[in-house]
């Protein structure tokens, strides 16, 4: 079979909304774990947000961290079980608002941990409030007129915040089209390989849709990512210590 669903995800149980981006990202993680033969070694610490639903249908070992703080938990997992792959599964709200201090300090310490950030430009689970990455003009539950620079400041870019830092890897991918999904898988695989080799802090952000809180159909959401979100948040590799393969 040319394309086979990974066995690491119990697919019938997924409770995400129609067209949610979490499913595709999970499939990429599952495929990579099978390719690297590391499914048994992966420990995922999720956030208390939409990503936490994963604990019900992943066949990986999982921990639900405190909201915004999966990173220190995941760093601790790696310290006490150095043979593990330790992934912190975060949303934009967790990584760049509530857990901003934890994200910055994990990077400053160059902790041996993998931060995966699903950036859907909102606090999704709580009903779609403004996050650090909400787009200017975007209407949310807490910015009903649209995000304004004077009120909420400018959209946050992790590549600027971590620019020049001595970390192993930093990349941003998207899943709005087939070529982007394939590219994002390459970023994730590079990041997992670096993490497997204990090279230090790796962070991969993925632009994902939240059709429910964007008030759009899934197809319209992917169009929005291509035409607006990817213009604000460029995809690519920003830091790759030691060079590529």
């Amino acid at each position: 079979m040319k394309y086979k669903v990974p066995t690491t995800v119990d697919v019938m149980k997924t409770t995400f909304c129609s067209g949610c981006g979490q499913g595709v990202v999970n499939r990429l993680i599952g495929e990579i774990m099978e390719e690297l033969g590391t499914a048994e070694k992966l420990v995922v610490t999720t956030d208390v947000a939409c990503g936490a639903m994963n604990v019900d249908f992943w066949n990986f070992d999982t921990i639900v961290g405190a909201h915004g703080r999966p990173l220190p938990t995941a760093t601790a997992v790696k310290k006490v079980r150095p043979d593990c792959l330790s992934l912190a599964h975060l949303g934009d709200g967790a990584a760049y608002n509530i857990g901003m201090a934890e994200t910055m300090h994990a990077a400053i310490r160059d902790d041996d941990v993998f931060a995966l950030v699903l950036n859907n430009c909102v606090f999704a689970m709580t009903g779609g409030q403004t996050s650090a990455t909400t787009m200017l003009g975007q209407k949310t539950k807490s910015s009903i007129q649209g995000r304004k620079v004077e009120v909420e400041g400018k959209p946050f870019h992790i590549e600027n915040a971590l620019s020049g830092m001595d970390i192993a890897y930093l990349a941003r991918g998207s899943i709005e089209s087939v070529p982007s999904i394939r590219k994002t898988k390459q970023y994730l695989k590079t990041a997992f390989e670096k993490h497997k080799n204990n090279e230090g802090f790796v962070l991969v952000e993925i632009l994902t849709p939240c059709p429910t809180n964007w008030g759009m159909t899934p197809v319209e959401s992917m169009k929005r990512i291509k035409e607006e979100v990817m213009v604000e948040y460029p995809v690519g590799e920003f830091i790759n210590r030691g060079g590529g393969k």
Binding site: K2, Y3, V5, F16, Q22, G23, V24, V178, P218
Partner: peptide, 12 residues
């Protein structure tokens, strides 16, 4: 297969 968020497809 690539875009489906709910793993409906497998391709032979």
């Amino acid at each position: 297969y690539q875009v489906c968020p709910d793993y409906v497809f497998e391709v032979n």
